[in-house]
Design a protein around this nucleic acid. Structure first.
Lengths: 183, 183
DNA sequence: AAGGTAGGAGAACGCTCGTTCTCTCGTCAA
DNA sequence: TTGACGAGAGAACGAGCGTTCTCCTACCTT
């Protein structure tokens, strides 16, 4: 197996374990067991656990925002595209194994001790917020709406994670719809 | 020093450390150093670290909700009382040492491994949501609004924690005001 | 005064886990 | 065929930390 494939397998295992059980309660030996990549090779690919964590968050960030954008693109009307964000969230919340937002969880776990992870969380959230702002702008709506929609989305993510339900997405969508109407 | 005073000192230290640095990165010896309570006595008061964590969350829950209610009580008009919740959040976000919502952070850190902590987080969030519902009901507004306000508040808490700013409270307050108007 | 008890300081124990090392095997080039 | 090299299995090492234990001091009672 070449390095690229080993790296993907390691990241697949890391993502499954870190997201499902938290970062600190997963040992490198767990990653080895789940991925089938030996410790020696793991440490060749990622010289320390922290770098595996960062690579996990980075790859997930790319995929998460890509899938969201892909879903939104299927909708034509600018306002529908905004509401589609919440529909997509609802689909995500309902997936088996959903355990809340990986970045919020990582921030709670590592934000106070790892400046790099904290920076990744901020960058991810800023990118998501900027994306919402671009949708709001394309719909000709006021900038301030973007921040409000962002808060609704964040609230839905954290609440869905805690209560293990997809319903917050529908509540947030309805609130977003009302806010769109007020302008 | 009697047991009650020692217990309060231990909880003061635990709260400062757990909230500021996360639970797992704080050792019992750190709690001893900060509180001045010896390890022997700490373990007499709390037979295991997990019980200290639970006591920390429980005491903070009581205080947090009590202070919120106390602030809200100072406002007379039902709709002003709802908006006062977001004003109070803004004051909290601006306090030195603010590091986001203790329960969201604890959930990210321990939710996957400690069923008891996960239960405390759910209970705290349900209580906060129920409180919002009581304010909404007292204002004669539709029940569905409570869930939307709750999501705004949660989004504001998590965002304020991540970006280290009090501004999300004002954004959430404005969104709440608009939602109040639509009914 | 003497003995008993509570509490403090901090060493000690055992476990987990990040990281490295050793040993062995298989492969491939010359 | 041989020797070098990469990789795997897993032991080993060292640090951190939850928890317990030992020893000693101070005070309280009779």
């Amino acid at each position: 197996m070449d390095s690229a494939a080993a790296r993907e397998r390691a990241l697949d295992a890391a993502e499954e374990l870190f997201y499902g059980r938290g970062v600190r309660s997963v040992g490198m030996d767990d990653v080895r067991g789940t991925s089938g990549i030996s410790l020696k090779r793991l440490y060749q690919l990622f010289p320390a656990k922290e770098q595996l964590v960062e690579a996990y968050l980075e790859r997930r960030d790319t995929r998460w925002r890509g899938q969201l954008a892909e879903y939104v693109e299927r909708h034509g009307e600018p306002e529908e595209r905004i509401l589609a964000v919440f529909d997509w969230l609802g689909g995500w919340f309902g997936e088996p194994g959903f355990r809340g937002c990986a970045w919020i969880n990582a921030y709670g776990e590592l934000g106070a001790t790892s400046a790099r992870v904290a920076g990744q969380v901020r960058a991810h959230k800023r990118a998501f917020r900027d994306y919402l702002a671009s949708l709001v702008d394309a719909a000709g709506l006021p900038d301030a709406l973007a921040g409000q929609l962002f808060l609704l989305a964040e609230g839905a993510m954290v609440t869905a994670g805690v209560i293990r339900s997809a319903e917050p997405a529908a509540e947030a969508r309805e609130a977003a719809r009302l806010l769109l109407r007020t302008t």
